[in-house]
Write a protein that binds this DNA or RNA. Structure first.
Length: 436
RNA sequence: GACCCCAUCGUCUAGCCUGGUCUAGGACAAGAGCUUUUCAAGCUCUCGACACGAGUUCAAAUCUCGUUGGGGUCACCA
């Protein structure tokens, strides 16, 4: 039985790198019909916070990585102490009392030897233990060190495969030594390449969002983020880019994971998110968007036309990079006074369009039925009579109605805005004494 | 500094294990165009890479060694 684990430390949010490590562990467990164990490494009492545990659990759940078992290291201190005492009795460790420390620490003796790791992703890696110092197992305050608690837990929890970030490679020989001293079987190791920020170094706040929960708040879909993370250091080999998690479970192989560090690219994530968004269930999107509209005071949650909003979402759905784009792009459907982009105004509304707008309003009033097609027909007849190209009038009308140069088709915009609001917005650009 | 890891378009990658089918394929981004209405949707096209140097071989992106470059780790943090 394959057993893998994800072992976050609740000293911060679950970030992109952690999410990817969790993904590969979870994927491997599901692909092999094994178990995915979650272990909260909260041995550092100072830095570990309950709120981070909640945040991490929440993010993992949102991503869809359900765990089969969960453990907290803070509840297992007696186990680490017991195991350390055993090494002490067997002469594999010794105690040391430092003058500035409260009690005695238990320290592991590193004997000279070569340590070979057969990494599932990287192949054989050899270390010389002479480059490794004796390792503290239990600190003088009685708490275990990371490398010790990690080995004891992985051994006792029967973890068969340790899939973790590259940054743990140099911990591996230290841990193997402890496995051997404890008399436990060493598991298989697979070290995932790191995810780098745009500037080459580690992914950091400076280069953009890092927490999974931030991506959620920005309007990325979990499925899209998972798909993107999957593609960062793994590829199916047949040029496919959009792979849902069910498919990934079928074809994923840990041995096919790349060795190269990957740079996080928000453009590609946006593209993938758009691909998922355009195929997403509109009702689901509506569920995400309604709270955003309420927060912006664009709608009153107790009194709004749900079907109307749903239609608007459909109108924009194929264009959204993130769900939140809707709130910005469709604002003109909800606001009384719409903000007009100054550059757009300068470009399309700087000349006097009183005559054109007035005539268009007259055409709209003359319509028997206010429909997308009839609006378009009326508009095209008008520009033909005026002897101008359609786009000469389309752009100004769009800016007057939406405040933007971009958006859905103009005639749909007019239809869903409604005749009254269309007339009202166009009228603002009509200079009265010229109507005459 | 020591130890370890890595090295194909700007970015993510396919190809590498099992050398020839690679004048290196796909995607994102960028640029150009089309869509008798915009683009942030769609379609078409363009730009663009085997880090360098040796070696092995009839043949190397693919195997070997070195160089350079990048990254990681060296805590009584995890």
């Amino acid at each position: 039985m394959i057993r893998v684990r994800f072992a976050p430390s609740p000293t911060g949010n679950l970030h992109i790198g952690g999410g990817r490590t969790a993904l590969f562990n979870w994927l491997y467990a599901r692909a092999k019909n094994g178990k995915f164990v979650l272990r909260i490494e909260d041995t550092d009492k100072e830095r570990s916070k309950k709120e981070f545990v909640d945040e991490i659990l929440g993010s993992l759940s949102w991503l869809g990585f359900n765990w089969d078992e969960i453990y907290y290291q803070s509840q297992r201190f007696d186990i680490y102490t017991r195991e350390a005492q055993r090494l002490l009795k067997e002469g594999k460790a010794y105690t040391e009392k430092l003058p500035d420390k409260p009690g005695e620490a238990i320290i592991f003796k590193v004997e000279p030897q070569k340590i070979k790791v057969n990494d599932l992703i990287r192949g054989e890696i050899e270390f010389d233990s002479q480059t490794i110092k004796n390792q503290v197992l239990i600190k003088s305050d009685g708490t275990p060190t990371y490398n010790f608690a990690c080995v004891v837990d992985d051994a006792l929890m029967d973890i068969t495969h340790i899939i973790r970030g590259d940054d743990h490679i140099s911990n591996t020989p230290k841990q193997i030594l402890i496995y051997q001293a404890l008399g436990y079987k060493t598991p298989e190791f697979a070290h995932l390449p790191l995810i780098l920020g745009a500037e080459g170094g580690r992914l950091s706040k400076r280069t953009g969002a890092t927490a999974i929960s931030e991506f959620r708040a920005f309007g990325y879909l979990a499925e899209a983020l998972v798909n993107y993370l999957l593609l960062l250091s793994w590829a199916p080999g047949d040029n496919r880019e959009l792979i849902d998690i069910k498919e990934a479970i079928k074809i994923f192989d840990i041995k096919q994971v790349n060795k190269t560090a990957a740079t996080f690219d928000i453009n590609k994530l946006n593209w993938i998110n758009n691909q998922y968004l355009k195929n997403a269930d509109t009702e689901m999107l509506l569920g995400l968007i309604i709270p955003m509209l309420e927060e912006k005071k664009y709608i009153d949650k107790d009194n709004f036309d749900r079907n109307y909003v749903k239609t608007l979402v459909q109108l924009f759905q194929a264009r959204l990079s993130v769900v939140n784009d809707f709130v910005d792009w469709a604002d003109f459907f909800f606001l009384k006074d719409i903000p007009i982009d100054p550059a757009a105004k300068e470009k399309h509304l700087s000349r006097d369009l009183s005559k054109e707008f007035s005539l268009f309003i007259q055409r709209l009033d003359a319509l028997d039925d206010f429909k997308i097609e009839s609006i378009e027909t009326a508009f095209r007849e008008l520009v033909k009579e005026l002897g101008i190209e359609a786009k000469v009038l389309i752009h100004p009308v769009r800016v007057a109605l939406t405040g933007k140069t971009i958006g859905p088709g103009l005639f749909e915009v007019i239809y869903y805005l409604g005749k009254e609001r269309t007339k009202e917005r166009l009228s603002k650009f009509i200079i009265p004494n010229l109507i005459g």
